[in-house]
Write a protein that binds this DNA or RNA. Structure first.
Lengths: 241, 241
DNA sequence: ACCTGAACACCGTTCAAGT
DNA sequence: ACCTGAACACCGTTCAAGT
């Protein structure tokens, strides 16, 4: 997928392939897969490439940019599913499912994907595909334009939830804390609505919740008119209109 | 709001108030407000409290727990708006707006709020209030139970988007990168749907986008039936039902 | 132009030793 | 029981000096 460094002579292993941006990012992807995002540091990556951290700054301007490049590289593996069987809603659900899947597989990256503003070519290709599916489904352009954000944000959040937090072990601990806090609250008369909900708050297979969430968004996006842009004069007054 | 350390004698400034969990968290909140989350480290916090980092571990088990405690403390300032004027949808929009506002004001915390599973009392109070508003609006319990997650996740994401990323300055840079990548893509025939969208993808005042997003969710949540739980036998087969 | 070692200014967490 | 200093094992980034 990335640079092919031509073997200069015929040694067993070219002991030091020249540094290139693609080579760095390829190495970064492999460190990510093997050890997770928290281990994907400039120093660790430099060690992998048999050089010093300072050398990487020729090709990558900082850690954030490195992470963004790695994310886009991974998004290249999301199949864009040219119009297949099923409704357009199914296609979108599949596409977002693949997107979420990539992020979950690469666990810890999902969390920082929530924070980045990706702008790589693979990300744009996904946006394009989503837009065309929405339009093909008859969703008005203005709603599709704003809806894209909601869909991608949701798909990313789902992955972030599933990704291990902290140190692999803490993942479960937060959930346990929330579950027990919830159970305790349900025995507390201060929380009547919570008590009435039973186990439903945390119930259900993640896959079903994910699919339901997307259905909610698609229905809402198609059905909710955009607000009229407020006329110039009234822009700064709030809560009046 | 937190511990009142009784002045032991009558010095100008009690030079070293005893450490307490509440005192630590109060100090953490003030460091957060003054310097942001990236500066809220164990070492920095210890310095603020005139002690060593190791001492904090008596009251706080690690950095993640500290951040969670700080978040819940801040959520205590979200007004729970006892049924006021307007529709139940308005009430929810207001409540989530306040929630988002707190996170935005405390900027960098929003990003980690996306990752935590909060379970503090103030968070639970917000969940309770949201649930009761949904139920009051006639939303079915099972949909409300799953919908809560969507609403809170969305409100948190919005704040994370607005929060400064990286080093205060990088905030704008990602956006600029995305904007220009988008504009370039719009001149590329590979992206017909994108090209047709014009400026709509990034347009609109954040406030309007936020309100539209919530309207989308509320409409979708109320209108989308939960999937039938699959019968035991077919659970592991995929894509057949 | 690219690469490097060393330095600067930090981290979280643990632990033996003190009180 | 609580507090501490020091240590361990790390970070990102810069920069003068080399090639």
């Amino acid at each position: 997928m990335v640079s092919t460094t031509p073997p200069r002579s015929r040694r067993e292993r070219p002991s030091k392939p020249a540094l290139t941006r693609d080579g760095i990012i390829a190495a970064a992807v492999s460190v990510l897969r093997a050890e997770g995002l928290e281990r994907l540091t400039m120093r660790r990556l430099a060690a992998e490439l048999d050089t010093g951290a300072a050398s990487l700054y020729v090709y990558v301007s900082n850690t954030a940019e490195l992470h963004a490049a790695v994310l886009d590289e991974l998004l290249g593996t999301v199949p864009l599913t040219p119009a297949r069987a099923g409704t357009w809603q199914d296609s979108i659900t599949r596409l977002l499912g693949a997107y979420t899947g990539v992020l979950i597989d690469n666990a810890s990256l999902a969390r920082s994907a929530l924070v980045m503003r990706p702008s790589g070519v693979h990300y744009l290709a996904i946006v394009e595909r989503l837009l065309s599916l929405l339009r093909g489904g008859g969703v008005a352009d203005d709603r599709a334009a704003w809806g894209i954000d909601l869909l991608l944000q949701y798909a990313t959040s789902i992955a972030a939830e599933h990704a291990p937090r902290g140190g692999e072990v803490d993942a479960a601990r937060d959930d346990v804390a929330l579950t027990s806090a919830l159970r305790e609250a349900q025995r507390n008369p201060l929380y009547p609505a919570l008590s009435a909900m039973g186990d439903d708050l945390l119930s259900g297979p993640p896959e079903a919740r994910r699919a339901w969430g997307i259905a909610v968004l698609l229905r809402g996006i198609a059905a909710t008119p955009r607000p009229d842009p407020e006329p110039e004069g009234t822009r700064s007054e709030e809560g009046v209109a």
